[in-house]
Amino acid sequence: MTIVFAIFLLTMLVITAVAIVQSSNLFVSVMLTSIFSLLMSTNFFVLDAADVALTEAAVGAGITTVIFLSALALTATQEKPNRSGRGIALIVVGLTASLIIYATFDKPRLGDPDAPVHQHVAPYYLDNTMEQMGFPNVVTAVLSSYRGYDTLGEVFVVFAACIGVLFILDARTGTGPKYVTRKMTGLRHHLIPQVVGRILVPFIVLFGLYVQFHGEYGPGGGFQAGAIIATAFILYSLLEGEQAALRAVPRSAQLGLVICGALMFGMVGVLCMIMGGEFLDYSVLMENPVTARQIGIIVIEAGVGMAVCGAMLSIFHAFAARSAEDTDEAV
């Protein structure tokens, strides 16, 4: 039954991908990209990767769509016709695709326990997580402790992406007179979404916090929680307008979240070094190494969550401020 479902999902995935390429309306493409992410997330779930599925649903289907849409508000909705170089592109894509398909012949069967990837370090993680960390979610243990360096790198990638987007979009500080005099934006004609949204925002934040702090026991963690909490604030700013959202979480606070989150992660590593261990070796933080690891993981997950939430919010607001400016000039 599962294999039928998986094949169905993969077929839908291919159809959606072709539709994304075929559609010349960018708005349609963005919505199809969101559907693609949702299908991908279901696919991950079928493969028993609940943590990745949650990330894909929150980031890929949720936030990315909103950011794409706000980017679309700055450009045209219709793709420009481009006929040059189609032949070369076709050859390159065809060659790469056949190479990749050829390479899959050497791949071990899906879920094969003897595959090299399941025989290298994975058995060690599976055997020792409960004993060394004291919680059952191996994904969280790998992400934040065994492979802490990689996650630190990811957080700094998020940090760099946020800084890069802000540089490109030339985000203002948001205190100029222009921002004070501008009219209230947001959905003034949409009473029902506003009321329902107001009810939902606190619960979305609560769910985000649950995903954040329950990450050791269930699927979840900093990345997912950051994205979910950012969704709540983006919903708030869509309903109540840019300024109300910026009053709630000012730009300085957003950047502060990104910087503090990344720094918190790094500082835990440095603290471990000061306490006499290695970088990101949490076991030295306290007497009991298991408790010490748990505390270290909670702190760095909080850092990850803060960094992701802040980065998403600053990118969204950078786009939103830019489109508001353009409409002002048009008026």
Binding site: H190, I192, P193, V196, G197, I199, L200, F203
Partner: peptide
């Protein structure tokens, strides 16, 4: 959650 958001999305 779905009963709250679904009709709201349709209305919007």
């Amino acid at each position: 959650f779905l009963l709250l958001t679904g009709p709201t999305a349709t209305y919007a």
